[in-house]
Amino acid sequence: MDALRPYIAAFNSRFLLMMQYRAAALAGFFTQCWFGAVHVMVLAAFYLGAPEAAAASPITLSQAVTYTWLAQGLLAVMPWNGDPEVAAGVRTGSISYDRLRPVDAYALWYVRAAGWMTARLVPRVALMILAAGIALPLIGQGQWAWQPPSSLSAALLFALSETLAIALACAIVMLINIIVVATLNARGINILMQPIVIIFTGNLLPLALYPDVVRVALFLQPFAGTLDIPNRIYFGNLTGQMAWAGIGLQIFWTVLFIVLGRFWLGRVMSRLEVQGG
């Protein structure tokens, strides 16, 4: 237990710090509502405008709507960019201190990123459920609401899959962090990540709605595991073997990225030492 203390402390301190930003949470919530509402209305226009195509669509309108709210509620745990603290550390040179601490740098950064992301997630997702899951049905707009999971087993599988999604997102954030440290510049990689994340996680459009020929490839690529897979488990679009296949993919990508990241961070850090960082 004692061996874990620095990591728990790192998680807690980051989590507590981020929870202070009340205005940021409200602002994030507002953003999610806006994008969610626009996405829902656009999807509705397409689905309702073409009943035949809608009937043939791999997910129903109601599922696409729930997908949209999930995507907005979980916005904070998408690997949009590297941890700003690492970027700041690179700029000010304070990352050298992380090399001096008697802890595993990868693990420390990983839990810090996890603290950062989950602290931002908690208030945003709570408000999102309140607005899209509870308030919308109450004002008689239930058809545009965030629906509950399709079944108890779907809910349980979703809980597992979403946990893995956050673990995977943190592993991707770590790869970005390492690129930031290696290139000593956060801007380039962050700009590059935005379009990749917005498309390949399913945030902009559920992956199932892209042309049928690319759907298998979209399912297999790593970013699906951060949003699309848990979402489809949630509303029962992925069940049974397919659900477990999705979870297997999440585990595969997470493990691969952690192994890759640890190896790479070690090399980057030792290079920094040689250069006198």
Binding site: A45, F46, A50, A53, S57, L205, L209
Partner: peptide
Amino acid sequence: ALFDRFGAV
């Protein structure tokens, strides 16, 4: 992708 699947709206 949306227009490809659903056509004109």
